[in-house]
Nucleic acid binder design. Sequence first.
DNA 1: TCTAATATCTGCAAGGAAGCAGATAATTCC
DNA 2: GGAATTATCTGCTTCCTTGCAGATATTAGA
Lengths: 148, 148
Amino acid sequence: MSTPPTEVFRRYLSAMVLNSLATAEAAGLNATDYYTLNLLDLSGPLTSGELAVRTGLTTGATTRLIDRLEKAGHVRRVPDPADRRKVIVEATGQLAGLDEVLAGTRRRIGELLGSYSDDELATLFDYFRRAATAYTEATDELIGARQG
Amino acid sequence: MSTPPTEVFRRYLSAMVLNSLATAEAAGLNATDYYTLNLLDLSGPLTSGELAVRTGLTTGATTRLIDRLEKAGHVRRVPDPADRRKVIVEATGQLAGLDEVLAGTRRRIGELLGSYSDDELATLFDYFRRAATAYTEATDELIGARQG
DNA sequence: TCTAATATCTGCAAGGAAGCAGATAATTCC
DNA sequence: GGAATTATCTGCTTCCTTGCAGATATTAGA
């Protein structure tokens, strides 16, 4: 009596969610800040206004959000040379400062991936690539109700 | 010039984190509440005290946490027949009420998984199963500093 | 049985994130 | 060049979560 597929996937999802939230917590980030860092990681630099739209916050709250992230060294404000009213927000590194916190997780997942053959890895990374797109589309749809 | 593996994986992770946080937000759950529901999903019913330890909250804050989740219909309090001081907290369903919110994500991932052969699916689900263990261990390690 | 320990809950206060409205600076359009 | 628009920021207030300390109920131990 093996575990059914949907159950396996559900456990995988829950385990990842717990891990990501525990990681954020350990790094001293609240949900909004963690969300924003992942957003910048995925989308690249965004203006303050774009961040406001993508996070669903007001521009005022977004200014405070950027303040927090900048103070913690996670992002930096860069003036937009083309429009000096705008502020471009870019991450200072790959989720700067999370490295120590992520180490244990990275090591375990790295070892796990190392146990697969090249063919299997090709399958897994094909999934990772396509799932990233699927998740991003699903997220946009989820947030879409808010933006239009 | 294809994308390097670590970059693919990083994008996958970020996309999942954004999706999970957007899901929680859409369901009206804050990070703590969402964490707790996933914890109950993964661990099964826990007492109030156990929840306090696993979330890192005080027992007082944990009472309020359970109040919120119970009011929203996500969990129910069950008296422990063996020790009537204790309160066992169990989820009312699989992340009750999140179904509509998760629909778009589930459909996309379902379609994606449907595009793989049986052999490939075996590889993917082997990964899901083992990665769940790896993430859980990494989470415990991350939280361990707090508990011991 | 009486006392100590344990589990949960409640009252109160503190801290932080967010909204709102108005201020400031820069750009666009006529 | 001047008015209207746009982008970000600031002051103030509100709401929500959490901690802390003490209350209550139950169990365990001498």
